[in-house]
């Protein structure tokens, strides 16, 4: 299949359209603006709709309306904009509306800067909005995955009636790499629950309100059951040189690319190191980390935050193995050599 050199942010949009998405509602923000720009350019050409909303809040609520219908819809933003979308995300989770939210993370807190960070991990994975909810969260580390995981995100969103988040950093969004685009979906999944603008609509209701505590608890239990099912079925990760590794580095997004170089360089020098890359951040590959812990003596988590994913690694291992953290913040990105230095220190005790 022919490849196209393309920016990650644009690969998201082409992937989305190939997945059958025809509705995009968004607001510009660096470093995610190319997603909106590509959507504005391509969607009208395929009979779709792009609206530049008046705000991030409006954008996700437009998605709320569109996702209530029998179509595929999406929005994208970057960290400060994602904070504004939290209200809508909680409502969508409550009303069980499937759609895709793309977060091209930048550095914070506050306005921060436009350099890459992974400081939105907790906001997305632990629920930045109110209430008890989860969202499927996929973390691409290449332009190819920006396309492929966008498509998967739509599929999982519809399969489970849940919002799906593509959590990428500024690097993955801005980078250009060759992408092979899969065939287009020729039909959309059936959504018997959705508003169709037809005679059966009187039986359909999209809402997140439930005044009766007993009923709302029942709804919450239903959601929890669904989350458990997703956790059973949809964990995704990649092992890299872990088979005989004494130290396994855990990283996602651009960091996993940097760490791959670290591993290659260290392996060339005879060091037994490997990498585990979570592809689904929720559901998190906890069981796999425990399994790795049988053989691996120590873990090193490398992330662009104050140490957010590391909490989940430590929870998974529950003290079974030491878990070290190497982190950068504010838009600083470690080099492969910097990670190697840290890994060597750990190996040498």
């Amino acid at each position: 299949m022919a490849k196209q050199l393309i920016k990650g942010n644009e690969a998201v949009v082409k992937g989305a359209i190939l997945a059958g998405c025809r509705f995009y509602f968004g607001y510009p923000i660096t470093p995610a603006s190319e997603v909106a720009e590509a959507a504005a350019y391509y969607l009208p050409k395929v009979g779709g709709t792009f609206i530049q909303a008046e705000s991030e809040v409006a954008a996700i609520n437009m998605v709320y309306g569109a996702a209530s219908a029998d179509v595929r819809a999406m929005t994208a933003s970057s960290s400060p904009g994602i904070s504004l979308k939290m209200e809508g995300l909680s409502y969508c989770a409550g009303a069980e509306l499937p759609f895709v939210l793309v977060d091209i993370m930048r550095a914070g807190p506050g306005l921060g800067n436009i350099a890459p960070e992974q400081g939105d991990y907790n906001q997305i994975i632990k629920g930045g909005g109110h209430g008890n909810y989860k969202v499927v969260c996929l973390a691409p580390n290449s332009a190819q995955e920006m396309c492929d995981l966008t498509i998967l995100a739509f599929d999982l969103a519809d399969k489970y009636r849940i919002p799906a988040v593509l959590l990428a950093d500024g690097f993955i969004g801005q980078m250009e790499e060759p992408v092979e685009f899969p065939p287009a979906r020729t039909s959309l999944p059936d959504k018997p629950w959705a508003i169709h603008s037809d005679a059966d609509d009187e039986k359909r209701l999209i809402t997140s309100i439930n005044l009766e505590p007993e009923l709302l608890e029942k709804h919450n239990l239903h959601l929890q059951e669904k989350y458990a099912e997703i956790t059973r079925n949809e964990i995704r990760f990649e092992d890299y040189q872990t088979a005989d590794a004494e130290l396994v580095i855990i990283a996602y997004g651009v960091v996993s690319r940097i760490v791959q170089t670290t591993i290659d360089d260290m392996r060339a020098a005879g060091r037994k190191v490997g990498m585990m890359r979570p592809i689904s951040l929720w559901p998190f590959p906890s069981a796999h980390i425990v399994e790795l812990g049988d053989q691996v003596k120590q873990f090193l988590v490398v992330e662009l935050s104050d140490g957010q994913m590391v909490d989940d690694v430590r929870l998974a291992l529950n003290g079974k193995r030491p878990v070290h953290l190497h982190n950068r913040m504010g838009g600083m990105v470690p080099s492969p050599e910097e990670v190697q230095e840290r890994a060597l220190k750990i190996l040498e005790g």
Binding site: F25, V57, A59, N61, Y64, A66, A67, S68, D70, V71
Partner: peptide, 9 residues
């Protein structure tokens, strides 16, 4: 906003 989203679909 929600009505806009739906009406467009």
């Amino acid at each position: 906003a929600a009505a806009t989203g739906f009406k467009r679909t």
